[in-house]
Computed example of a mutant assay.
Amino acid sequence: MPSDPNETVYDIRGLTKVYPMGEVQVHALRGVNLRIPESEFVVLLGPSGSGKSTLLNIMGGLDVPTAGEVRYRDLDMTRVDANRLTWFRRESVGFVFQFYNLIPSLTARENVSLVTDIATDPMTAEEALDIVGLSDRLDHFPSQLSGGQQQRVAIARAIAKRPDVLLCDEPTGALDAHTGITVLEAISNINAELGTTTAVITHNAAIGQIADRIVSMRDGVIVDETCNSTKAPVSSMSW
């Protein structure tokens, strides 16, 4: 995996997304410009309806823009077909959502193996679960795990295929503060140790303390960007 911090992973220009709602058009994004370099940990901060999830979904190839350009490295994501976007999602992106989406009848190991079975150069399920601190829970079912542990299984599943990018949409939204910190430690460690370019959506400003950069959104536009010269460790966060 490349590790040049000056290399651009995402170059987003003039990004616009309009959803038709009957006779009304909802402007979810209004000309967003954003560059994300190699190995950066960026937090997308803003209230509900600010456009964060729409932006993340387009970055992950789950949605397409109405106008503008999204380049992932040398790939112009706005000019490729659905099959190419599917390949991009499968090979390059790990997704973590607010709800864990684990299969209840499968163990932690088996849930992660669903991804390793189709990836080109995956970790083993055991390696991925060890990275998130669950090597002692390999054969536990979701019902036998806490909410934080289930989310860490979801993170292990996301990173098991060795993605270039990790995209997280409110990964601590369903968790209490203590459990959320455990989950954020897993995400932060992956960014630091594996160099995985990471974007985390949140409405919790405190999470920005552990990021390289905070991108604040409101009403479909970026209203502020703040760089952290020294990231705070997760353990020191004031939630």
Rank of each mutant, 00 (worst) to 15 (best):
P163S: 06
D130E: 15
V132R: 07
E193H: 12
M217G: 03
L166P: 06
Q144I: 13
F99G: 03
S216K: 13
N204M: 08
E126K: 12
A158Q: 00
I155L: 03
D169P: 09
A186T: 03
T120F: 14
I155F: 13
R162P: 02
D219P: 03
F141N: 01
I118A: 00
Q144W: 11
E110L: 02
L102N: 08
L129F: 03
D176Q: 08
L106S: 02
A192G: 03
L167G: 12
H178Q: 15
R109Q: 11
H140G: 01
Y100G: 07
S143Q: 06
R109Y: 13
Q149F: 01
R218E: 14
A119T: 00
N204S: 13
Y100F: 15
E170F: 09
R213F: 11
V132N: 10
A199M: 15
A211I: 08
A108V: 11
S188D: 11
R137S: 14
A128T: 02
A128D: 06
I214P: 00
T182F: 01
A192Q: 14
S216M: 14
S143V: 11
L102K: 03
P163T: 05
R218W: 05
A156I: 12
H178E: 15
A174H: 00
R157I: 05
N189I: 02
V215L: 07
A199K: 00
V183L: 02
N189Q: 15
I210Q: 09
I214G: 01
